[in-house]
């Protein structure tokens, strides 16, 4: 087994003068073995995701990137971390700046991470345009989307724009926080299909917070179940959700609403 890209090692997190949000959480994310973080609201899923994204520092334990502790002070390493680890949010109405064109939104990682810095200045714009066009094409948006603004798109299309931004730097890992739960059912399936396709074609490892076990089953080969800030069960998705051992996991699997059975 290859070395994990991101690893949380015995991570704990607490806000000042508050009970711990996370306690002793260890999770490994290896190439192609995406992990779904499931659990009730308040279980600490989103906090864990923020730690894995380097947006907050754990109170105890360590977050490792390519085997070394992630240090926010090391700018060069943070840049390669940011390039390799991108994110998609739950609410596509909040995650796109309403005052920027889609081209500008999608190209933000290219500019901020200085990915086109090696090119001579005049060629940068053209290169950025090509990268944006390629990313938009990959998420199934028309070419003319680049010149338009977020409010001109539906929720599902906005989520595609957000995904385009997340893949434009050609990351290895995509950390997504409930990427489809704000979308309508039919849109939801299309975005899940898109993420599955990107996973195959780009070797993207998808790590995701989700309460929707069907989405989890479709996208992530591994599951970690969190309850009150602790991982109570983790392993292969089929094993954990197919025959859950922990009481909470069992309740979770039982609770998934299902369509009435098809007549035999």
């Amino acid at each position: 087994m290859s070395r994990p890209i991101i690893e949380a090692r015995e991570v704990g997190f607490a806000y000042r003068r508050a009970p711990a949000v996370l306690t002793d959480v260890s999770i490994e994310i290896t190439q192609g073995r995406g992990v779904a973080l499931v659990g009730e609201s308040g279980a600490g899923k989103t906090t864990l995701l923020r730690l894995l994204l380097g947006l907050a520092t754990p109170t105890t334990g360590r977050i490792l990137f390519d085997g070394d502790t992630l240090a926010p002070g090391d700018r060069r390493r943070m840049r390669s971390f940011r390039r390799d680890v991108q994110t998609v949010f739950q609410d596509p109405y909040s995650s796109l700046d309403p005052r920027q064109s889609v081209a500008r939104i999608v190209s933000e990682p290219l500019r901020s991470l200085g990915l086109l810095r090696d090119l001579p200045r005049p060629e940068r714009r053209a290169a950025a345009g090509e990268r944006v066009a390629a990313a938009l094409h990959a998420v199934g948006l028309p070419e003319d989307a680049a010149g338009r603004y977020p409010h001109e798109f539906s929720g599902g299309q906005r989520q595609r724009v957000a995904i385009a931004r997340a893949i434009v730097s050609e990351p290895r890992v995509l950390l997504a926080d409930e990427p489809v739960s704000a979308l309508d059912v039919s849109t939801r399936v299309r975005i899940v299909d898109l993420l599955a396709e990107l996973r195959e074609t780009r070797g993207l490892t998808v790590v995701m917070v989700s309460h929707d076990l069907a989405v989890v089953a479709a996208l992530c080969p591994q599951v970690a179940v969190l309850e009150r800030g602790r991982v109570v069960e983790q392993g292969d998705t089929a094993a954990v959700l197919g025959s859950p051992r922990h009481a909470y996991t069992r309740r979770l699997v039982r609770s998934v609403p299902r369509l009435p059975a098809r007549p035999a």
């Binding site: 380097g54 995650s95 920027q100 933000e108 500019r111 901020s112």
Partner: peptide, 25 residues
């Protein structure tokens, strides 16, 4: 808004977040 977090995970520095996202909004 999430787009501020998105800017940070895209490696955008705080001064640029102010100029490109906060002030225009």
């Amino acid at each position: 808004h999430d787009f501020i977090t998105a800017a940070r995970t895209s490696g955008t520095s705080w001064p640029r977040v102010v100029l490109e996202h906060v002030v225009p909004n």
